[in-house]
Design a protein around this nucleic acid. Sequence first.
DNA 1: TGTGTTTATTATAATATTCATATATTATGA
DNA 2: TCATAATATATGAATATTATAATAAACACA
Lengths: 98, 98
Amino acid sequence: MNSKYSPERLEKAARCLRTLAHPLRLQIINLLSQRERAVQELEKELGVSQSSISQHLNLLKDKEIVASRRAAQQVFYRLNDPRFLELISLTRELFCKE
Amino acid sequence: MNSKYSPERLEKAARCLRTLAHPLRLQIINLLSQRERAVQELEKELGVSQSSISQHLNLLKDKEIVASRRAAQQVFYRLNDPRFLELISLTRELFCKE
DNA sequence: TGTGTTTATTATAATATTCATATATTATGA
DNA sequence: TCATAATATATGAATATTATAATAAACACA
C-alpha cells in the first residue's frame, strides 16, 4: 500500500523534477505564472537566444508543465497548472532559507 | 519585490531540485521519512551497493536534505525536514496523475 | 509566388551526472 | 596492535544534459 512511492512512480517523479531543475526553466515558469507569453517576449525578458528558449519550452511542454497556442506567427505559452509555482515556492522555502 | 524569484535564488533552487531528481535518492528520502536508518539498512532495503548509497547520501547531505549521526561503526541518516516529503508528494500529484 | 517574421529542429561540442571498482577511513574488540 | 565491520572517498568509463550555430518550417501579406 505504499504504491504511492513505488519505484516506477518515483522514477517518473524524478524525471519530472529533473525537467524543473534548471534555472532558466524556473525563470520561464515564474514569468508564465503571471500571464502567457510569446517566445520572443521570453527571449527579450530573459536575454537568451531564441533557439535556447524554444528548446527549453519544448522540454516543459513534453512534461505538460506548459501548454501553447499559436496566434498567427507567434506561439504563446502558458503554465498548465498554477500549482507548479507552489512547488517552486516550497522548494525555495526549503532550500533558500538564509 | 520579486526578489523571491531572482535569478540567483532560482539558480540555487534548480541545483537543489536536481539533487532531489533521482529515483534512488527519492526512495532514500521516502524511507528516511519513516525513521532514521543506517547505511547498511538502506543498502539492504534498496538492493544497491554500499558505495552507491553512500555517494547518494553524501549529495543529499551536502544540500542539507538529510543529516546524520554516528553510533559506533554505524552512521544513521535522517530527513532534515519532513516537508521534503511534502515536496515529493506534490510532485507526484502534479506529474503522476493518470 | 516571394519576402520577412516568428518559431522549431538538428547537429555537435562542452560539461555534468551516474555507476562500478578499488581503496581508504573510522571504530570496535580481542 | 591486529582483524573485522561499517562507511567514505577517489577514479574513470558510460551516459545525459546543455549551449551554440546553422537550417528548416509555419505563417502573413504584398
